[in-house]
Design a protein around this nucleic acid. Structure first.
Lengths: 341, 341
DNA sequence: ATCAATTTTTTACGCGCGTAAAGAAAAATG
DNA sequence: CATTTTTCTTTACGCGCGTAAAAAATTGAT
């Protein structure tokens, strides 16, 4: 860190003893220059700490190294966690990730895509809002920008889809619940934000039929992304009205389950698999918080690492020129047994 | 949206009938041109949807419209929520926010600041990691970039500090607990990540002295930002070893309380203010999740809106030229009574 | 209508870098 | 060693826009 301050690549090139175009080439891809040249540049880099002006860089490059990461709701730790994971993978692969959240609002999602477009990203990892998304806006965006859809699939949009196998999720945990006690009721939102919810309900119905049990879907009112509150209020209603036909409740997702647990507590209904417990409650997602509910929540967890790795790698190979047909990858979840069911 | 595609400001200027420098002036500040001119530009804007190239824009502007928002841990819904709030305020004020998280890692925090520096932001809203932060790196950054520190104060760095009044927080809730039952023990991490924790402990000691009660600080081991797990494990130990001298526990923060509640559940200790409950537990922060614990957590909540509004406005006025001396603003919290205490 | 103040137009340059082309130098090959 | 291949240097242009300066046009008030 000695020497005078470097103002631009011209100056840096001269102190490093390499021509500017070669230095430019190095910053675009360090492997594209001879090892000895690379060493000289990196030696100079250590002495003079210079960083290329990203604005001048991106202005002329046909493709930037920017990658957008978009999630529907960043205040949901599940998305925050997966976003963090994706972010790290982008950095490791030499890209510059930028994080966006639609905050549950379709209009904001469109705005995010517009902002993203002006960033001229090399690619985008997008978890759409789902049902509320502006389909056409998504399609137009995907036509312009290499976009990989994750978490929640919308038609056959983008380069590919990577997410969890919701059928397997629900089939697996329904199976577990049936084998260990009364068959579950299914607790869900009447108008879920996320298309995954429909798959889970269908999978529940299939699994129950396979077992020869009568299904019981309890759908509760509520719009938006405040799932806990929807689960709590809906849970109160359902409990008071005796809408649960068995002592076991499988929730469409963990956040709904968390709200339902609160409702149970508030009604004095003991939850768990102990003798003294009235009902069992299970969730789905492996939400970061599910470990700390009371009782800790039995759930089926996304394979966070595998989903984000598959998604990131698929995007990167697409960016780097590999053309492959649209593909949907759905990864299995892992049952996490805790005290609630 | 008719007409041919606009490639650059030159073309847009010609279709709008205004000269390019004036159009440029408009995009920099719509109010800087005559209303009639502005109307003509905006009319053209509706017909031709053109957006200036942000890279070319930012390259030459002395000051960009970028604002960095940095939080220590985005997967903590508290920070996610405040980040969302700040983001919206930036957009409303005509800035372009970019969100960063240090993910609890001091090295990452430094990297974030480096990345941010190359974005040449007009200003930064920074919630530092706290104790683990690289003080020197923070100072250097603040010397280069107008930075407003929020949530957790580090010396007298940056333009100003805006956060909550931790003394008031703890004094207020300690007061409540003392008046409604046994005086509280104080449950905290031995080596807290955040300097606010020290203020809260001190405030607890002061309050207890004022009441003439003997204080009892229970400090538990654990490094990092997995507060729930630290609270759970520490809670198990403390409960088993009988380290709580009264039936009331005030936790240094809500996430620790959430972990402690789980420990209580796992040990079969009933929490709440009912006759059949063994202990009372209270938290501090008004964490988004605190409503849904079992029992719902009594806590003292940050004034999210006021903190983010004060922080954002202070930054904007500083960016817009107002020089004012360093100042610390600490906002009071509001007690939220629920069933846990 | 007249004059001053404000705003816009015209003209021109530069920002920092990508990138293309042609020639020089270095490395690899035989 | 001569030859081919690869890499680097030199030179040069352009990207899209900010911005400065001087001239022209518009506005507002007298």
């Amino acid at each position: 860190m000695a020497g005078q301050k470097i103002r631009n690549m011209e100056e840096f090139a001269s102190v490093s003893g390499i021509s500017r175009p070669t230095v430019s080439k190095y910053f675009n891809d360090p492997d594209s220059v001879r090892p000895s040249t690379r060493a000289r540049i990196e030696a100079a880099l250590e002495q003079h700490d210079y960083r290329p002006n990203i604005y001048a860089m991106n202005q002329n490059r046909k493709l930037t190294k920017n990658v957008g990461v978009v999630v529907p709701l960043l205040s949901d730790p599940y998305f925050a966690e997966i976003a963090r994971n994706l972010e790290q993978r982008c950095i490791a692969a030499g890209y510059r990730p930028t994080l966006f959240s639609s905050h549950g609002d379709p209009a904001l999602e469109v705005e995010v895509l517009d902002t993203l477009r002006s960033l001229k990203p090399a690619g985008v990892l997008l978890a759409p809002l789902g049902r509320a998304s502006d389909r056409q806006a998504l399609e137009r965006f995907c036509a312009d920008v290499p976009t990989l859809i994750f978490d929640s699939s919308v038609d056959q949009i983008g380069l590919a889809f990577v997410g969890s196998d919701n059928f397997q999720f629900t089939a697996h945990i329904t199976d577990y619940l049936c084998r260990t006690g009364e068959p579950p009721c299914f607790f869900e939102m009447k108008t879920p934000a996320n298309p995954n919810a429909h798959r889970r309900r269908q999978s529940y119905l299939n699994a129950m039929e396979a077992f020869g049990h009568a299904p019981n879907v309890v759908s509760v009112d509520g719009e938006g992304w405040a799932f806990e509150e929807i689960g709590r209020l809906g849970g109160h209603d359902a409990l008071q009205q005796g809408r649960f036909s068995t002592n076991t409740i499988l929730c469409s997702n963990d956040r709904l389950a968390i709200g339902l647990l609160t409702a149970c507590y508030e009604q004095g209904v003991r939850v768990g698999r102990g003798k003294d417990c009235a009902i069992r409650v299970a969730g789905q997602d492996g939400h970061p918080h599910s470990r700390y509910t009371c009782p800790p929540l039995t759930t089926i967890s996304h394979n966070y690492d595998a989903v984000s790795q598959t998604a990131a790698e698929a995007l990167f190979t697409a960016i780097e020129g590999q053309v492959s047909p649209w593909k949907s990858t759905r990864l299995e979840g892992k049952l996490i047994l805790r005290d609630s069911a």
